[in-house]
Design a protein around this nucleic acid. Sequence first.
DNA 1: TCTAGCCATAAGTAGATCCTATCGAACGCA
DNA 2: TGCGTTCGATAGGATCTACTTATGGCTAGA
Lengths: 292, 292
Amino acid sequence: MDLRQAQYVIAVVDNGSFTAAAASIPVSQPALSQAIANLERELGTPLFHRLGRSVSLTAAGEAFVPPARQMLRDAEVARAAVTAVAGLDAGRLDLVSLPTLVVEPLVELVGRFRRAHPGVLVRISEPEDSADLIEQVRSGEAELGLGDTVPDDASLEGHLIGRQRMLAVLPPGTDLGSSTSLAATRLASFPLITTPRGTSTRRLLTTALRDRDPDADPAIGVVTEHREAIVPLVMAGAGAAVLPEPLARNAAALGATVAPLSPRVEREVVLVHRRGALSPAAEVFRALADGG
Amino acid sequence: MDLRQAQYVIAVVDNGSFTAAAASIPVSQPALSQAIANLERELGTPLFHRLGRSVSLTAAGEAFVPPARQMLRDAEVARAAVTAVAGLDAGRLDLVSLPTLVVEPLVELVGRFRRAHPGVLVRISEPEDSADLIEQVRSGEAELGLGDTVPDDASLEGHLIGRQRMLAVLPPGTDLGSSTSLAATRLASFPLITTPRGTSTRRLLTTALRDRDPDADPAIGVVTEHREAIVPLVMAGAGAAVLPEPLARNAAALGATVAPLSPRVEREVVLVHRRGALSPAAEVFRALADGG
DNA sequence: TCTAGCCATAAGTAGATCCTATCGAACGCA
DNA sequence: TGCGTTCGATAGGATCTACTTATGGCTAGA
């Protein structure tokens, strides 16, 4: 059995004759006759009574027609479903993002993407750490990853889509003196609040401090996996933190003392994906990230 | 798109890899790869992410799979429906029968057929007259016809499946004297009750009378299209009728005087169908009629 | 009886599908 | 880091299928 054969049978039913059906497809009449004859042979039963000048369905043909119609409809449904996904009227875009990049710039990008393509579901997953983010992209679990390093992997491709300045976030009322920035050595004098080893924020913090003074041994005050606890901890006077600018600005609005580090510390925002063709949804998202 | 391609895609989804899918069908792995590649080219979108050592569905693939499964199920439904009809577990048998043959022998045949194949619907239509019965069979409106003449038509085939003796049915208390049969000339002396010209019963009556005495002009007492009124009319003394033996026996049970005609008058019972292969249901029915 | 229309058959060609063999890439193991 | 294994993709060639045009047989209507 075959979609083509089913289509031919339905055409004969709807047109009343083999000749008219063949003309409507279009295909030659003998081709249609043979295709139906082959189907009948395969099924072991004639589907049509040949009455010389007209044809009519046999009982077997009557039974065949309804599921055959359904079959053709399903084929159209399948085709339309795929087209809808390709045309960004449906489907899903799987993203993975470092937690500190979710608020900025991810939410803005996702918001613009969703407004442009409301039919596409966006799923955002949280990686264990930077290595896991790369792995999720490499394995196909996510199609696009938002990280802070261009991966050292030939099968992956990274696009720099922005930079984030890192700011020191200090307890309310901390006296900075006359300077508008905070020296790395001064930062090291605070008990620090940060996430566990292996996370990108932590790596950024230690790298920044060592860059300035390799011998300094920063005093870690609090280590937590709960990023959302960092700002409240600073506010409670538990210590200082280093956060990307958008998060630091939020903390400042709550009363924390915020200052850029001196010298300046930045991290890159990198969009990662597998080398090769992206899905239409991912392609649009990448253009959004590049352009904006 | 193609049922085969859909089947291949589903096999990959269910088996997790192209190789395993190919082994399960069975088909060679390159054939499966090419078929899916062709489908993807036709749809304009990849259905699978090729991850080197494993594959996973793209968003388009996710959208494709459910209707594709439905399509394959429908193909099975179509096949099963046809098989059910061919195997006499479903379907319909269209019969057309002269009214006087419905009670005998048709009901008995249909009863036996239905007991053997309860899934097959039997439809019995009533022809206008003998010519219409032939036409219904010839046009395919009915597959089998039960008549009383072998049709003079090269496209049709007639099987003699029995004979029916015609009996005179006379009002209760009619004196037949010592004879156990009724001479044709005696019959002609009764006012006769019969159906309109063109019907097979009428033709049989007049033919029988003329065979005996071409000059006799039978006195027609009542002409009615309502066959079921004939016996009550006889019972009411409205005249005499000539009926096939089974109907006449019923009348006798109600009190009518019944006698075979002398000389004997018979009609043939003929099963008519188009030349060529019959549907399985019709074939079984014909065997039933021939054998019984 | 003749003509027109419809389906079946025949013959040949173009295309598709399949196979085996092989390649390139990726993963796991040492 | 190198090697073997396993996976999917590619290449080449044989086979089969489906299409085309041309033609025949049969039916229906003039």
